[in-house]
Design a protein around this nucleic acid. Structure first.
Lengths: 153, 153
DNA sequence: CGCATAACAAGAGTGATTATCATTCGCGTA
DNA sequence: TACGCGAATGATAATCACTCTTGTTATGCG
């Protein structure tokens, strides 16, 4: 089990290093720490959440490096329903998935994609591409509702 | 043709008036102007866009009234990929649809929902509801890519 | 007609995010 | 190993979409 995780982590780190190197950026300790934080979470994280879990990283460093990681396609910014942006590893590294969004507290959770749903979504994409002149390259499917905590309260 | 539009507009205005009345709010000229602006656009609008198309409305009034219209379920705020929030009529008034999002310029266009896709999405929703404790009430399906203008340039 | 209440509009304030800049660090080179 | 250059860091200032405050105006009701 831990071997699998170690291998997975290594491959992710290698991929990140390559992508940063393409624009002459270094894979520093802080950036590695950020990537590991994102990889460990099973859901997109807000900056305050990242600050809370990694007190070694100052806020400005988190903001700056998340922006850079997003530019090189390692991280991804998710616009949510509350005031905070949320960051997760890019789908190329973490695998394609969708999101559960709580409309009350803003929490976002990951949900794996299913083959049948993906086929329906892709069909819809190709049907639209021609009609409106868009070149569709990816999709987002969010399911909105109340999370377990907000259901109870 | 214009008769149909007139009826449609009237029914929307009536619905808006009722919803505002429930919280002791009036359906004023500015609010009607806002609703008509949103209804006329076939896509979600940013506040700068609304300011540009209706110079009679000061920015503060647009912000305040869009917030109120959103609270009573008449309008809806769409988080996009750029810095600007976008507003559209709530789906209860405009009908269910999805969005095409340009990843370069941020533009958002509407795309009608199809029955087969909706069925697939609903199936996915019910499959997830039980598993993760969420109570899913609605969904968002965005197709990301380049709009016609950004394709050309 | 006059009061009560809501809406308006201009500007100040808020807060998440971004830019600045002196200092430190990482990495290649001699 | 020491040197030097450029990138990275982090404390702070600035930005900007958005919200609140305040004094004024308009509207509905008796």
């Amino acid at each position: 089990m831990s071997d699998i995780h170690a291998k997975l982590s290594t491959s992710i780190h290698d991929a990140v290093r390559v992508r940063l190197a393409k624009v002459d950026q270094r894979y520093t300790t802080r950036r590695r720490l950020l990537v590991e934080t994102l990889a460990a979470a099973a859901r997109p994280l807000t900056i305050p959440e990242i600050v809370a879990t990694t007190p070694r990283l100052p806020q400005s460093t988190i903001y700056r490096n998340l922006t850079i990681l997003a530019e090189v396609g390692v991280a991804c910014r998710i616009p949510g329903t509350d005031d905070y942006g949320r960051y997760e590893l890019a789908e190329e590294l973490s695998g394609h998935h969708h999101h559960l969004v709580c409309t009350r507290c803003g929490r976002v959770d990951d949900v794996p994609a299913t083959a049948t749903l993906e086929r329906a979504l892709d069909d819809a994409a190709s049907a639209v591409t021609d009609r409106q002149g868009y070149r569709v390259t990816e999709h987002r499917f969010d399911q909105l509702g109340l999370c377990r905590d907000c259901c109870d309260s």
